[in-house]
Design a protein around this nucleic acid. Structure first.
Length: 363
DNA sequence: AATTCGTGGCC
DNA sequence: TGGCCAAGAAT
């Protein structure tokens, strides 16, 4: 905490609050979730706005409020109906967690959204940001609500050069906000910071000449507003070599398996494959060994066919594809099947394996 | 701490 | 056109 005292040295928090809040009173956008402070309505908006743009949320929010006007309506609704109302918004676990949390409020808190950090923070889908947003906006409680906007704005205002991509950095900004938040109007203070980040203090080419708090902004005075915030890029994806086998049975069908129900590409179908262990150069032999170990299948591996690269956020698969034949009858299980082309068309394969499929069935 | 989870808009 | 996101949370 001592470190932050240096950051706030000479910063006039009170004038900053006034300028920010006055601006928000004047310039705030007319948004459907700003008609009142109903905690339920605020809650829904905050969940929908997670990682989602305002313009995308608007129509969903309106529709959602017509279908589920009160907390009780949402709690009593069928889950399918809720998911249907969420269809197209993305991050669907938000909808499931939201309804579970709303039911928790109905059953445990008599239908009243709790107003303490401890209680509200326990609700499913309510993390540090959403907790502070509901408490401040709906209940006028001076809690930080630190999202990407707030970190960008405050890193410029106070010239903070910590990497905002690191999870730990959010804690620093929460501590800073606790020191400078308005206790008279925490709602407009928090919303003002986010609105400023959305309209003026935008990521690229911020409109500093229109900014209501530029006289408080250290980055502006130092001319480094475009250098902030510091946000490290995701590190270069690691190249992961993989050997995959397109094995056919004597009657022309294909051997495929289903991925585990958790983790990367959960439940998707694919051609049998294995990550190449470091130092192993004999791909053919490793694939044969994998088929024996994993599926107890003796296979004959033919010649190397093609190479495919497929990118994810943090890794790139470098797939070496071999074609081959199975030398015995395949015992099918839930996760290992022999399929014709027609049967495969009806299953879900990951993109990478669709590429393999197309390449190997073209001829 | 690192991964995963969706979608549409932007330059 | 393809990266880069945008009012994060769960695991």
């Amino acid at each position: 905490m001592k470190v932050y005292l240096d950051i706030l040295q000479g910063f006039n928090a009170q004038e900053f609050q006034q300028d920010l809040i006055s601006w928000f009173e004047q310039e705030q956008r007319d948004l459907p979730w700003r008609v009142n402070k109903d905690p339920y309505r605020v809650w829904i908006s905050e969940i929908m706005l997670q990682q989602t743009r305002v313009e995308a949320v608007k129509p969903y929010y309106k529709n959602f409020m017509e279908k589920f006007p009160t907390l009780t309506d949402l709690a009593d609704a069928a889950e399918d109906e809720v998911l249907k109302a969420w269809e197209g918004l993305g991050y669907y676990s938000r909808a499931r967690n939201l309804q579970a949390a709303v039911r928790e409020v109905r059953d445990t808190y008599g239908g009243i959204v709790p107003n303490t950090p401890e209680e509200i923070g326990k609700l499913k889908g309510v993390g540090p940001y959403t907790k502070g947003a509901i408490l401040s906006i709906a209940y006028d409680i001076p809690e930080p609500a630190v999202d990407g906007n707030v970190m960008r704005v405050m890193s410029r205002i106070l010239s903070i050069w910590e990497d905002i991509a690191k999870p730990k950095t959010r804690q620093l900004f929460e501590d800073v906000i606790r020191q400078v938040i308005s206790h008279d109007n925490p709602s407009y203070f928090n919303q003002g910071l986010m609105e400023l980040g959305a309209l003026i203090c935008i990521p690229k080419n911020p409109s500093c000449l229109l900014c209501p708090v530029r006289q408080h902004c250290r980055a502006f005075h130092e001319g480094v507003q475009k250098e902030l915030p510091v946000k490290s890029k995701a590190k270069e994806p690691k190249l992961v070599p993989i050997v995959a086998g397109v094995f056919r049975t004597p009657n022309g069908k294909y051997v495929v398996n289903k991925r585990p129900s958790t983790g990367l590409l959960a439940n998707m179908w694919e051609f049998p494959n294995v990550e190449v262990k470091e130092g192993i150069t004999n791909h053919k032999q490793q694939l044969m060994y994998h088929m024996k170990e994993q599926f107890d299948l003796h296979v004959e591996v033919g010649e190397y066919t093609l190479n495919i690269q497929h990118g994810f956020t943090h890794r790139t698969w470098d797939i070496f594809v071999f074609e081959g034949m199975v030398q015995q009858e395949v015992i099918e299980t839930e996760t290992l099947k022999v399929m014709s082309r027609e049967e495969m068309e009806e299953r879900t394969f990951s993109r990478s394996h669709q590429k393999i499929y197309e390449a190997c069935t073209k001829k």
